[in-house]
């Protein structure tokens, strides 16, 4: 199981422009396995990513806007994509110039494989 998760993170980390990839326990908001530029930030990133996904998802569901499947943040210094699969959140952090279509496709592939 851990090999599969590690391979998933490595697959995402290999995408050009990706600066970090993390699998997060969606319920607990804790990092399971990942590669970040600053590994010390992993617990904070995991907790915030889980909170962002969970709270936004709940709000959208309450507003009858459907079940959240992907949350993508674009910022001046990079982008963050969060999607879910099998009780885990897949978090990918990328530079602004990364190919975001590829990041999205591969993150969704990982999510499907883990579900």
């Amino acid at each position: 199981m851990n090999d599969r998760l590690t391979e998933a993170v490595e697959q995402l980390s290999r995408i050009p422009g990706v600066t970090g990839a993390l699998l997060v326990d969606a319920e607990a908001g804790l990092p399971v396995v990942g590669e970040l530029a600053d590994d010390a930030a992993a617990p904070a990133v995991a907790a915030l990513a889980a909170a962002a996904y969970r709270r936004t998802g709940r709000a959208l569901d309450n507003a009858k806007l459907g079940r959240l499947e992907m949350f993508r943040l674009e910022a001046a210094g990079g982008n963050v994509l969060i999607t879910d699969g099998g009780g885990l959140l897949i978090v990918v952090i990328a530079e602004p110039q990364a190919h975001h279509g590829r990041v999205q496709v591969e993150a969704l592939q990982v999510a499907e494989a883990l579900s």
């Binding site: 930030a41 936004t56 993508r72 943040l73 001046a76 210094g77």
Partner: peptide, 22 residues
């Protein structure tokens, strides 16, 4: 939530958020 996440990652001001639901 997005602003908090961008802050802890040092990504600066948010420029866009996309939410995909079913």
């Amino acid at each position: 939530e997005a602003a908090r996440l961008a802050g802890v990652l040092g990504l600066g001001a948010w420029r866009g958020i996309q939410l995909h639901t079913d």
